[in-house]
Each structure stands twice: as structure tokens, then as C-alpha cells.
Amino acid sequence: MIRSTHLPLLVTLGTFVLAYALCAYDYPSMLSTRVVANLLTDNAFLGIAAVGMTFVILSGGIDLSIGSVIAFTGVFLAVILRDTSIHPLAAFMLVLILTTAFGAAMGALIHYLEMPPFIVTLAGMFLARGAAYVLSTESVPITHEFYDVLQGLYWKDPSGGRFRLIGGIMVLTFLVGILVAHRTRFGQNVYALGGGGQTAKLMGLPLASTTIRIYAISGGLAGLSGIVFSLYTSAGYSLATVGVELDAIAAVVIGGTLLTGGYGFVAGTFFGILIMGLIQTYIVFDGTLSSWWTKIVIGGLLFAFIVLQKGLTWATQARRRTATGSAAAS
């Protein structure tokens, strides 16, 4: 059944299909699995971070720290693998624990000090970026044979597309994210928090643990995104991924999630990521367009989606008014 709350998701899907059709019309080779595979690989780190951002925005918050956390993770891994002999898997575990705890700490501050998420995560953004600089100001290459193994893992489609590990991790993250958002109590609590914190509290919801877990997830997924980014670039650089949080927010909004929280879908964010990736790919195919056109198109899309959301809000309010009126008369 199609409900009005599903409409933004459908619009996102429609936009994606339309955009892909336009691309394929101009460059039929964009239909190849190679392009699809690269789309997944190139956007893997952004996609993973955007899943965490979706939870945060669904709860009515924002997390500005994830770009810095991704960079910190990369530098941390590069430095620890250069200077010590611990296995990358252990390093991964370590950095995931660190970033999750970092997110949880921000969530705790937001809840217990009743601070706006914007300010707390802004502080987190500077902290994580600063910590990355402290570890190393230069780009540190990662040369570990385990990295080569991981980077060499891919499934080759008969027609030539290479579906790499990191793309798979992103798809898996999205699947788990969808399940958590829609089919667990925690997921329902996230929506409830976005629908109204005070009301959720009166309904007996565990606000503290929900808020802390939301930002812990966002931090942890930023850590995972950082691992994926280090696999993607084979290096750690403290100046990398500046502003990725804004790309993630854009993907979430284009994916149909309401910035004020409470309405949206994790699956929408997936298509938001793909739409953004598609624009980039088109510009690469074209070759004559400046890459800044990506930003312009994304900007335009964002405006379109914000207007769409406002329109939908008005539409539902109008519908609600008539519904109330008819119920009163009956």
C-alpha cells in the first residue's frame, strides 16, 4: 500500500531511475556492470557514514563530526600500522571501539547537558580533526600485505565489473541499517525521538540510552567508513574527507528523510548516495564539464527536495484538517 509517508522515498527512487535513464541515453556504456561496480566502490565510505547520519537525522539531531572521524581513523590506522606490528584486524577493532566511544560520549553530552547536537558535534569535529593532525600532518601510506589481500578481494562479473569488498561492506551496512531502523525496538525509538522528545519521554521511552546509542552508531559507522576509506586510498591523511559530513547530510535529505526528524528511510539514503554518485560519473563520462558541476547539481537537487518536503508537510496538514472535520461530523 502506498502511503503519503512513503512518497519522499518514491520520489527519490523516481529521481534515481530518471537520472540513470538520462545518463544511459547519453552514454549507453553507463549501463555496464563496470560502472555500477565503480559506483558502489567509489561511494562506499560515504554510504557507510550516511547510514549513521540517517539515524542521527531521523532522531532529529545532526552529526558534524563524521568527516573528521573518518580522517582520524585513516591517520590512526596508517600510523599504528607503520609504527607497531599489530595486525590490521586488531587495529580495526581498536579504532572502531575508539570512534564508537567517541560518538557515545557526544550522545551523552547531548542528552545529559541538554546541549544542541549541532554544537556538541561541532566540538567533536574539531577534536577529531585535531587529533588526526597530532598523529601526523603528512599523508602516511599504508603498506601492509593484509591490506593488499583485502583490496584484492572482489567478485568479477562476466561482463567485466569488479564488485569489491568495500562496496559489499556498504551494501551490507545499508541492509543491517534498514533492519535496525524498521524492525527493532531501538529503531522505533529513534523515530519516536524524532517525532517529539518530550512526548517520547512521557510514553516511557529510554531517552538517554537511545540518544547515546544513536551517536555511538554514527561514530562507529564513521570509524568503519574510515577503515573503508583507508582501504580505498591506501593511506591516512589528516586533511582528507573535509566536509564529508555535509555530503552525507545531502545524501540523507535527497534520500527523502526530513531534516527535522521523524520521517524517512535508510533505503532512501542508499538511493541518495547513488544519485550523487551518478552525477559524478556522468561528469567523468562527459569529460568537458568541470567537476564543480557535481556540487551545482547536488545543490539544485537539495533545494528541490527541501521544497518537496515542505509541500508534503502542507499537504498532510491539509489532509489532516479535512480528516478531523469529517470525523467530527460523522
Partner: peptide, 11 residues
């Protein structure tokens, strides 16, 4: 009404 407008009746 202290219920959440963004959820369904059952939720």
C-alpha cells in the same frame, strides 16, 4: 494527545 504524529497507530 501525547502520542507521536510521525508513527502509525499500531506503532
Amino acid at each position: 494527545v501525547n502520542l507521536l504524529p510521525n508513527l502509525t497507530v499500531a506503532e
